[in-house]
Design a protein around this nucleic acid. Structure first.
Lengths: 109, 109
DNA sequence: TGCCTACATGTAGAGAGCCTACCTATAGAC
DNA sequence: GTCTATAGGTAGGCTCTCTACATGTAGGCA
C-alpha cells in the first residue's frame, strides 16, 4: 500500500474503529489490520500523533487506565467525533466516485 | 474535496486520462473536471509539476506544438506508462477495498 | 484603443501529514 | 537471562499538493 494513499483518510479510519467501542492505540492498530483483512499496517508513528490531533480537534477524549500492569490510553468518540465520522463517510463516497469515474477503463472508439 | 485526499492518486488520474489520446496540460485539467462530473478541480500548480515528474519517471513523453498561435506541450503514454496505469488501477481497487471495509458502518450488537 | 476572458505553461515557497527510526517500560514464556 | 508481545511515545525527514505569482497569445466587446 502506497503510504501517500492514506493521506487524508487516517481520520476517517480512526473515527470508524472507535465508533462502537472505546479502544487504546495498540488495539486500534490491530483493529485496522483485522478489519482490512491485513491490508492496513499503520505504524505507531502515524497512529499516536493522529489520535492526539483528533483529541486536540475535540473529536476524541482519552483517559488512562492500567490493565495487567500495563498503562493504556483509551480513546472515545465525542459527539463532535460522531459528526466528523459522518462527514468523513460522505466525503469518502464522493472521493471514490470522483476518482473511480476517471480511472474506469473506457471503451476505445 | 480535501486536497490531501488526492495524495498518491494524481499519477493514476493523469495516466488514465492519457490512456486513449495524447493531451496537453490544460486539456488534461479540463478532462479531469469533465470525467469526474465537476468534482475534480486540479490546479495548474499541481498538474504541470506532476506531468514533469511522470515524464522523468519514463511514464510519459512530451512534444511541443503550436496550435492557433498558442504553444502546447502534448503528453503521451509510454509502454512503461501503460504498465504503471494497470498497476495504479489494481492499487486503487485494493486501496478502496481496504478503506471501505474499515469505514463500512457495522451493525451494533 | 483598451479591457476582459479564455487559453496555455510554468515556478517558488509553504504546509501538512505520514513514515522511518528510535526510545522506554512491563509481563510472561522458555 | 533473553526474547516476544504488549503499550506508548518523539524527532526529523520526505514528498506531494496547494497557493500565489509570473508570462504570453487570441478574440470579443465597448
Amino acid at each position: 500500500m502506497n503510504p501517500d494513499a492514506l493521506r487524508g483518510h487516517m481520520d476517517a479510519l480512526l473515527l470508524s474503529v472507535l465508533e462502537h467501542e472505546p479502544l487504546h492505540g495498540y488495539a486500534i492498530i490491530e483493529a485496522l489490520q483485522e478489519r482490512s483483512g491485513g491490508a492496513l499496517s499503520v505504524p505507531t508513528g502515524t497512529v499516536y500523533p493522529a489520535l492526539r490531533r483528533l483529541e486536540r480537534l475535540g473529536h476524541l477524549t482519552s483517559e488512562w487506565a492500567t490493565v495487567a500492569g500495563r498503562k493504556r490510553r483509551t480513546y472515545r468518540l465525542t459527539q463532535s467525533g460522531r459528526a466528523a465520522l459522518a462527514g468523513e463517510r460522505s466525503s469518502w463516497r464522493q472521493f471514490t466516485d470522483a476518482i473511480g469515474s476517471v480511472l474506469a477503463p473506457r471503451p476505445q472508439e
